[in-house]
Amino acid sequence: MTVTRTATGTHATAQRLGAASYLACFSGIVWREVLRFLHQRERFLAALVRPLVWLFIFAAGFRQVLGVSIIPPYETYVLYEVFVTPGLVAMVLLFNAMQTSLSMVHDRETGTMRTLLVSPFPRSFLLVSKLMGGVAVALLQAYAFLAVAYFWEIEPPPLGYLTVLPALVLSGLMLGALALFMSSVIRQLENFAGVMNFVIFPMFFASSALYPLWRIKEASPLLYEICRINPFTYAVELIRFALYAQVEPVSLSVVLGFTAAFLAAAIFAYNPSKGLLARRGEPGGGGR
């Protein structure tokens, strides 16, 4: 950094933002997200309890009702709890992404968002960093859930805990990018209940998270088709196979494609010259 001395004081003049600066910015944004999460113990508890309730109560009850045949990646019959675990991990990512979206709408309303957007770094970089911060928090939640689930006889191969990491990151990015885009569309915090009803629940239930797709096809061909166009289905399958150290190429391609599309939409929405915020006169303190 070069410094200019003026008659009355000193200022830093234009500084090239090098790799070290980008790294400092990225780690600062991610660290803040993690720190905020760790400070909010209730949020951590809720994030852990939600999938565990599904695992301990819902899945245990369904064990006797719903049989799961041998379908890849499973090599033998598995308990329903084992089948449903990848779906619940994906649910953790989904809820965390929507929580991030909620906090961004809140940040926009309170003005905190402005401190992020006034940074000299490119806005796309800031948004991706923010997204990665959300993914880092989601990873903490997902691994905490898998750790508890292990004691409930959900025991994927040890290597699976490592190979599932990139699948979690990618799926977290896809859902986070969707949430980021939605945060630009949602005008007020009060509208968030609608997001729960129209996004989270349909995405979760109309997917392969709770039932195998062949079962859904037998029950309702229409619902089957809906599940097939739901990106969440592919996130669940990507995680399911990765947890058993396998790659499911179709799911990988679909999740990659949707991540790129949602991210492009979010970056467009927050673009200072083209985006939705500019047309509305937001974010934060949107008065004249």
């Binding site: 500084q15 933002l17 070290a20 600066s21 980008y22 400092a24 910015c25 780690s27 600062g28 944004i29 660290w31 803040r32 720190l35 401190t115 992020l116 006034v118 940074s119 000299p120 770094f121 800031l126």
Partner: peptide, 13 residues
């Protein structure tokens, strides 16, 4: 922590 976050947003380690 608030100030450290702001510093990071300006690329300051």
């Amino acid at each position: 922590q608030n100030l450290a976050y702001h510093a990071a947003l300006h690329g300051i380690g």
